[in-house]
Structure formats: structure tokens, C-alpha cells
Amino acid sequence: MFLRKSIIALTGLFLCIFLIVHLSANIILLLPQETARGLYNAYATTLRESFLIKIVAYVLYLSIILHVIYAIQITFKNRRAKPKKYLENKLRQNSSWASQNMGLLGVAILLFLVVHLANFWARIKLGLGEGVRLDDNGHVDVYEVTYSLFQNSYYVFFYTVLMVPLGLHLHHGFKSAFMTLGFYHKKGLNILAKISLAYAGMMSIGFGIIPLMVYLK
């Protein structure tokens, strides 16, 4: 289980880095319509044509799969270790809600991921569903896919609200991953707790607010 826990931690931290890159690119969406379209589509094309990004993409798929599978395995093993629950258990007095419910938060994020991949990845990369047109520069118009999706208020709501479980999951997971990997410097961990909070806040607010801003554009 130690090895599996370390793999969950490592893949989790890799996904954390991925989120930073993803959010940085999403900021383009906040630019004026036509500037955003040109830049965003050019960026998407560059990524798609890069060999290096192709490798990173496969590492990303593998990370998500391993992170989920090992987390499920360990969760079930942990449940077996505590077959009988207490009649009364005041967990809020000794630990945070997020730390006690990482599995539940993970399921919410996975639900989001399935919808998110169906909206973008399946349509653009797998060519499923409605075809995607090219823009004036001959790039696949990824911006249009994004923009039109966020004209639908239900999707905006879904994309915004589900960034709350993401933030909570990251807040506990980011710091906890370092501890699982053996980082035990006390002062360092205090600083890491602050970084963890700032990082989780930035990711959930950043990802949550962009669909809303695009909707209101």
C-alpha cells in the first residue's frame, strides 16, 4: 500500500502542475472575442502538433487512471479496516471535512471530468458529435466550441459549482501528497499549508469564474 499511496501522491502532484498550465491557457478566453479566438485556436493547434505534448498527454491519461484506480483500492481497504462505525463521531472537532471526504470529492471531480471530456476532448480530438469548423487562419475553432458551450447557463452552473469540490480536494491533497512522499520538515510544512490553500483557492476560483465571465461577455 505504501507504493500505491506514493503513486497516488506523485500522479496527484503531476495533475496539480497540469492544472496550472491549463488555467494559464484559459485566461486567453477572457480577452476580447476575436483576439481570444485567434490566440486560443493558435495555442490549441500548437499543442496538438507538438510531439512533446503528445507524450505529456499520454502521461496525463495514465496519471488520471492510476490515481483513480489506486484511490478506489485503498479506500476499500481502509473501509475494511474500520468495519464498525461509532454511534457518535465528532469528526469536525479533530479534522477538516475535506480530509475526511477525499473519496466523495474525488467522485465529484471524476463526474466533472467525464462531462468535460465529452464536451471538448470527444468532440475535438475524437471527432464525435457535431463537427468543429476551422477559423479564418485555418485552425480548428476550439474557441467556438468553448464559447458556445458557455452560452448555456446549465453548463456554466455545472462548470462553476463543481470547482468547489476541486478546490477542497486540492487543498487537502496538495499538502498531503508531500507528506506521503516523506516531506516532514515542520516549518516547511507550515509554509506548504499556506501554499496549498493559496493554490487550491486560485485553481477553484480561476477555473470557476472563467465560464461565468465568458457567459457574461
Binding site: K5, L91, S95, S99, Q100, M179, G182, F183, Y184, K186
Partner: peptide
């Protein structure tokens, strides 16, 4: 079970043993 760093143990420990001990064991 495995440790998921909820931190409940160090609050309930009569000796106040820090959870950083677990990270040190991992190292």
C-alpha cells in the same frame, strides 16, 4: 488502514505526538 493525513490522531493523542512523524516514517 493507510494514513490519509486527516490529522485526527494528533488532536486525540494524549502525548500530542505530531503527525509529521508519519511523514518522517515515510521518508
Amino acid at each position: 488502514g493507510s494514513c490519509t493525513f486527516t490529522g485526527a490522531c494528533e488532536v486525540e493523542c494524549p502525548e500530542g505526538i505530531s503527525i509529521t512523524n508519519i511523514a518522517e516514517m515515510n521518508a
